[in-house]
Design a protein around this nucleic acid. Structure first.
Lengths: 214, 214
DNA sequence: TCGTTTAGTGAACGCTTGTGCACTCAACTA
DNA sequence: TAGTTGAGTGCACAAGCGTTCACTAAACGA
């Protein structure tokens, strides 16, 4: 048994509780190494369950990883909806949004740490899943920028590139918040300045014709 | 024996040859997973040597990892010296530098892949070593920007932030080149536009007093 | 030429690994 | 209430793991 069987708990509830415990255990174990470096048996031990019980919930560690990706991005996207809803104007966008992102990282550190690691070092399927999610977010940001009218001088291609630039930067910032939580205030202050530098670029940039040089 | 013992080879030469073979084998094996996920025995097998022979060259896989970091950055820094020597002016800086970086990534793919992975997912010591190297490069870029006089309106703090912004962006670009080499041309073209967007920001930005808002 | 150094060997050790299989027994359905 | 379902058990297995130790034999310095 994973833990004490609680009173009046249905079979489905119990299964879900064990499933959660497995996800949390994997998150904790991968925290100081890597998904590819931990074992099914370690996870089972941490949960307090026999190794074979793992298979009742996930076919493999890789599938467990995909479930963690799913879970992480579900919560991330909810936060982003919130950010974009309260971002009518650019300066407010920076000062308003960054702290919300920072707070979300703080409150979901293990998920962000997982994503940061597995994004580059995870099993190929996991990497792909993460890349896909980030791409979706980038596209959403692009349509949001276009809709806001803040970049009317941009071609739609270049709005995409700008969105990618912003997302890449925020990903980098989130990685830093994850692995040095104590410097959150400084990291955030620097990121604010940098994002402003970058967006000043946005306001002064003009899209060229497809052919390159000006 | 790692391979056929070559004629007229000194003991030192032979040792170096085996050492190289170990480094290469580790690089190759870590390529489709992670340093923390490969075993000393796999490395030894790939080299064609008995597991215990490994210890004649490295005390542990982690120390091997540190050697790989060292090796990767030594070559990277040589390239950067080359780039900065031929970068008198900003527009030339972009068009001239990015292809050199891309070429270096192409020619040293396994090193870059290693760095990209271990930077976020490696053993703590390895992560630290990589972070330290990147920080050094950022500082060098900052002094170079200052010396070039291209950002005279910047405070030295803000020059540091700009350098960090550029380095972070190039790191991201290098990661993309690594895991999708076939799209090099497109990735490069996009990066060129994005870097220009960013630097237009640089030219229009003014440092503020330490206190934030304007 | 002869003793020393040392890269690489090979067997052995105690553990951990993933997975197969037959099982129990509480929660479920009819 | 009787029968079915399925989450979790317990054992077994072959394979792989890091590390130890005593060893060989070729290159070395004197």
């Amino acid at each position: 048994m994973p833990t004490e069987p609680e009173d009046g708990e249905s079979r489905a509830e119990r299964k879900e509780r064990t499933r959660r415990a497995i996800l949390d255990a994997a998150l904790a174990l991968a925290a100081d190494s890597n998904l590819a470096a931990i074992s099914l048996r370690q996870v089972a031990k941490q949960v307090g369950v026999v190794p074979t019980a793992f298979y009742r919930h996930f076919g493999s560690l890789e599938l467990l990883g995909l479930a963690l990706v799913d879970e992480s991005f579900r919560s991330l996207r909810e936060m982003l909806l919130d950010v974009w809803r309260h971002a009518p104007e650019y300066t407010d966008f920076i000062d308003g949004s960054l702290p919300i992102v920072a707070q979300h990282v703080r409150e979901n550190r293990s998920h962000y740490a997982f994503i940061a690691r597995e994004r580059t070092a995870g099993p190929p399927r996991v990497r792909e899943a993460i890349g896909h999610e980030i791409e979706l977010i980038t596209r959403e940001l692009a349509t949001d920028i276009a809709r806001s009218g803040a970049a009317q001088q941009y071609s739609s291609t270049d709005i995409g590139l700008l969105a990618d630039l912003i997302v890449s930067f925020v990903v980098t910032m989130a990685e830093r918040l994850v692995d040095d939580p104590d410097s959150e205030a400084r990291t955030l202050a620097q990121a604010r300045t940098q994002l402003r530098m970058l967006l000043v670029g946005a306001l002064n940039w003009r899209s060229r014709e497809p052919a390159e040089r000006a």
